[in-house]
Simulated scan of single mutants.
Amino acid sequence: MKKSLFGLLLLSLPAFALAAKLPVVASFSIVGDMARQIGGDRVDVVSLVGPDQDAHVFQPSPADVKKLSASRLFVTNGLGLEGWMGRLTKASSFKGVLVEAGKGIKTRMAPAEEGEEHGHEMVDPHAWHDPQRVQVYIRNITDGLIKADPQGKAEYTRRAAEFAAKVKQQDDWAAKEFAAIPAARRKMLTSHDAFGYFGERYGIKLLAIQGVSTEAEASAKGVAQLVRQVRQEKVNAVFMENMTDKRLLEQLTREAKVKIGGELYADALSKPSGPASDYLKLFHYNVETILKSIR
């Protein structure tokens, strides 16, 4: 009798509850959260580069190699963000589904980092700061999840649609708020050039101490030039980022006699107790922080 009751209980459970969750590795916390939002209870997502950490300078450890070798789906940003990815996938002998979340988006080009030999432009990888481009991320991640776990197609499709609607809602709100601010006030300076797509989407002029990679070091000459530009253009919105060295920005604000308007979340989520613990919170927090300084 007990055995038959147990069997009935098993039959009453959803199929995915009886199976192990899909092991997913994400390159960094932002795309990791997107995979989690779409995958729901069917997935177990681990981010190699965690909250408040910098994907530009990350160096994989043997433990990371082990995580990837055990996963069935690897979600990356692509667009040149993860320079370490090729070495990691080779070392882990990864045989699962590889998703480049940014594949197919319309990219923007950024000036080459200081000290590069050829001086050519490079692709800006920070496309997640434009919610319209995030819709491409959502489609790519959803397709990868379905390929790795075909039985979850209906669930992934439903959750992706819900997440996409929430992203659009945030975009509509931000576009309305920024459109109400005169173009002359829509200027901001950050510690590295991570908000180019954001500025393009909402008509904000951006200045940055570092280039699109935090590996690039700003020169004294470059900082001096920025001080002059901040003064000339009367930039009031100056921001630190959660995963970069704040000393250069503090020096610049002293010399330009402007105040730091707050901390933005550029390349990483906050810790769970912070204000940007998932993508939607990150975006909303960044918009509100910027609006307070440029209004």
Rank of each mutant, 00 (worst) to 15 (best):
I30F: 06
V31E: 03
I30T: 06
A17S: 13
L13Q: 12
H56V: 02
K21W: 03
K21F: 00
R36N: 10
L18Q: 11
S69A: 15
V25Y: 08
A26R: 04
V45D: 01
P60S: 07
R42P: 05
F16A: 10
Q53H: 12
L13K: 09
K67P: 05
A20R: 12
L68N: 03
I30C: 08
V49F: 08
P51S: 07
F58K: 01
L13F: 13
S29T: 06
S69P: 11
A35K: 02
R36I: 00
V57Q: 11
V24G: 03
P14S: 14
A17L: 12
V45C: 03
D52M: 12
I38V: 05
A19H: 06
I38D: 00
D64C: 06
P60V: 08
L22G: 07
K67D: 11
Q37N: 06
S61H: 13
A20T: 13
S61V: 09
A20S: 15
L13V: 10
P14D: 12
P62E: 10
P51A: 13
G32Q: 02
G39M: 04
D52C: 07
V46N: 12
F28P: 01
V65I: 15
A35E: 00
A63V: 03
V65Q: 13
F28K: 02
F58P: 02
I38Y: 00
A26Q: 02
A19Y: 07
F16W: 13
V24M: 04
Q59A: 13
F16I: 12
D41H: 09
P23S: 04
D44Y: 06
D64Y: 10
F58W: 04
A19R: 12
F16S: 14
K67G: 05
V49T: 14
K66Y: 05
P51H: 00
V57R: 14
P62R: 08
D33C: 02
S47C: 11
D52F: 07
D41S: 13
L48N: 03
A15C: 06
D64M: 09
G39H: 02
S61T: 14
F28S: 01
D54S: 08
A35S: 10
R36T: 09
K21G: 02
L13Y: 10
V57S: 14
D44R: 11
A20G: 15
P62I: 12
S27V: 05
D41W: 03
K21C: 00
L22K: 07
L22N: 06
A35H: 01
S69C: 13
Q53T: 14
K67S: 14
S69T: 15
